[in-house]
């Protein structure tokens, strides 16, 4: 099972190459999508500068770097050595990195104030185990993002095996995201979405401002909440 996840992660990087993958976020459309996702993630974890934050499945570290720039004490974890080497090369030295599997996190319980994960679990088997691990290591709030099957983005990029960086990804409906938390010690779970029109043109940007994020049609569906402590 574990090998499978690592192979999937490697495949994800092979398909696109770390540099190309990260450079996509520097394109006007990529930057707009990334910033929109980042903004909702910050809002959902109720981010406070100076807190500790773990980015699970950080890949090339685009989100990890941005959280660090916002003043978080940030750690990035990914199973792919090539991605992490690239991530570290691009980042400032205060960001910490660890090679690891989301389903067997190498951290003590409640190690981080916040734990985030952006469209990473959808590349592995047994996502529920990864969700459970994220809840375990969170002290305050977590926010986990999945690719949304009920979105325009899915119709553009997710068909058959998926295109580009979406190759091999599993796309979930928002209700399936809810189910991944059933039975876990979590309270105050909220599900929101972002990136309603993935084109990034002025019309899309207007839509993004108007459409409330509780409408779950966006390309990224994010579940956020707090761990329930006994």
């Amino acid at each position: 099972m574990r090998n499978e996840a690592v192979t999937m992660a490697l495949r994800k990087v092979d398909q696109t190459d770390a540099r190309t993958y990260d450079a996509w976020y520097d394109t006007p459309r990529g930057r707009w999508i990334g910033e929109a996702e980042l903004s909702l993630l910050c809002q959902l974890v109720r981010a406070r500068s100076g807190a500790t934050l773990l980015d699970v499945g950080c890949g090339t570290g685009w989100f990890t770097r941005r959280f660090a720039a916002k003043g978080f004490h940030t750690t990035g974890l990914d199973p792919n050595q090539g991605s992490l080497a690239f991530a570290r090369e691009r980042s400032t030295p205060e960001i910490r990195w660890a090679l690891g599997d989301a389903r067997a996190l190498p951290f003590e319980d409640q190690s981080f104030d916040h734990v985030i994960s952006v469209a990473a679990l959808c590349f592995m088997e047994d996502e529920r185990q990864a969700v459970s691990e994220i809840v375990r290591v969170t002290r305050s709030r977590f926010a986990i993002g999945w690719l949304n099957r009920s979105s325009l983005l899915y119709w553009q990029k997710g068909h058959s095996t998926g295109r580009g960086a979406y190759y091999g990804a599993r796309w979930h409906r928002p209700e399936e995201v809810h189910d991944l938390f059933s039975g876990l010690p979590v309270h105050g779970l909220v599900v929101r979405s972002v990136v309603f029109c993935p084109s990034g043109n002025p019309v899309a940007k207007t839509f993004e401002r108007i459409i409330p994020n509780w409408l779950l049609w966006g390309g990224l569906v994010i579940a956020a909440g707090e761990p329930l402590r006994a």
Partner: peptide
Amino acid sequence: AYPIRDGIPVMLEDE
């Protein structure tokens, strides 16, 4: 024994 490569801990059982 989990290796530390280039300062990055490799926390995978297979490695």
